[in-house]
Design a protein around this nucleic acid. Structure first.
Length: 350
DNA sequence: TTTCTCACA
DNA sequence: TGTGAGCA
């Protein structure tokens, strides 16, 4: 296939295809006589993946790294590509859903007032801001160096950061206490240690993680689990799917401003009675967090300090008030210096 | 038609 | 991170 046909098929410019070649993402063979590029089916498939990754906000440099990784591991390649594609489509779906909702409200406002107030136009702008947030976050998500880093950290279970790890996972199980037949979701499931508590009691569990290595390990440990590649801000499931969501040591991967967006996303995939349980390191106030960091510095624990500084720990009261403002009743406990568990159940309409 | 390079945002 | 113009 020649470049123009490929470009038409993929709906991009021939110029862009040459650009990707220049950046080393593809290397189509060239005819000896005229040095025209010819593209095989495989190369078109690869290009399609590149385009999807670009749309998700991943930089060209990161795409190159990603493709190198998958090239080395051919068997998992197809599945991984498809996982990425699905994540992208889910994000786009959310995007459309949101645009439709805002348009609807604007139509209703027009019917009532015959004019659209400035405030509502502002709300629309906020909506597109949310989309940018999602994209921006995805860029971080696909940073492979960072993935490797979290991988190592999580394997070291008994570090200071993971003090009380087993205890809080058990507690999460006890608090949520699902009935047989209920469906749960573990966000940032990692190797599935939290999900395991539920699976061994016969509860159907789904999991989401942003790392394919984690997914691979988790799937081999728990073959019955439904694991998808995805992100807190674009959970790759349809609406109203789950009876409960649990998450441990993962909520801190998204920034404090994005955390309410993540909670909105959780509510979207939950059934109306769906409950949420978050186990993670948190602080009582921002100054308490600063104090803790300062103490670490003073006691020479710079290693722990640097890993903790990369995270976005929630302020527990802020989290609790979000739940209360959004119609939940909450229960929480402090396990040790750092570790909190927060459980939220929606108040049922009478 | 396609390739390549240069300039531009 | 791409896009167009002009050339061969």
């Amino acid at each position: 296939m020649q470049i123009k046909d490929v470009a038409r098929k993929l709906k991009i410019s021939p110029r862009a295809i040459r650009f990707y070649e220049d950046k080393g993402l593809i290397s189509p063979s060239k005819q000896e006589t005229n040095s025209y590029r010819t593209f095989t089916e495989e190369e078109i498939w690869r290009l399609q993946t590149i385009i999807s990754l670009r749309e998700s906000g991943m930089s060209v440099a990161d795409i190159q790294k990603a493709l190198q990784e998958t090239d080395a591991d051919n068997k998992a390649q197809l599945q991984y590509y498809l996982e990425i594609q699905r994540s992208v489509v889910y994000a786009q779906w959310l995007e459309f859903k949101h645009i439709i909702e805002t348009t609807d409200t604007m139509i209703n406002l027009l019917k009532q007032n015959n004019s659209v107030p400035i405030d509502d136009i502002f709300t629309l702008a906020e909506g597109s801001k949310r989309l940018r947030e999602i994209r921006k976050n995805w860029k971080d998500t696909w940073n492979f160096d960072q993935q490797a880093l979290t991988h190592d950290e999580r394997v070291l279970h008994n570090d200071d950061e993971y003090k009380g790890y087993e205890e809080i996972l058990d507690l999460t199980w006890q608090w949520v206490k699902p009935r047989v037949g209920e469906k749960g979701l573990d966000l940032g499931t990692g190797t599935g240690n939290l999900a395991h508590r539920f699976l061994q009691n016969g509860i159907h569990m789904a999991g989401v993680d942003q790392s394919k290595e984690m997914m691979k390990q988790c799937q081999s440990k728990h073959p019955q689990m439904d694991i998808k590649l995805g992100n807190f801000l674009a959970i790759p499931y349809m609406d109203n799917q789950f009876d409960f969501i649990v998450t441990s040591f993962a909520f801190h991967h998204i920034s404090n401003e994005q955390q309410p967006l993540a909670l909105d996303e959780m509510r979207r995939v939950l059934k109306s009675h769906g409950r949420i349980c978050i186990a993670d390191i948190m602080f009582e106030t921002e100054s308490a967090q600063e104090q803790y960091m300062n103490d670490l510095l003073a006691s020479g624990r710079t290693d722990l300090l640097t890993t903790m500084q990369e995270k976005h720990y929630a302020i527990c009261p802020v989290l609790l008030s979000w739940f209360e403002e959004n119609g939940y009743i909450t229960k929480h406990a402090k396990i040790n210096d750092l570790l909190y568990i927060v459980y939220a159940v929606p108040i049922k309409p009478l």
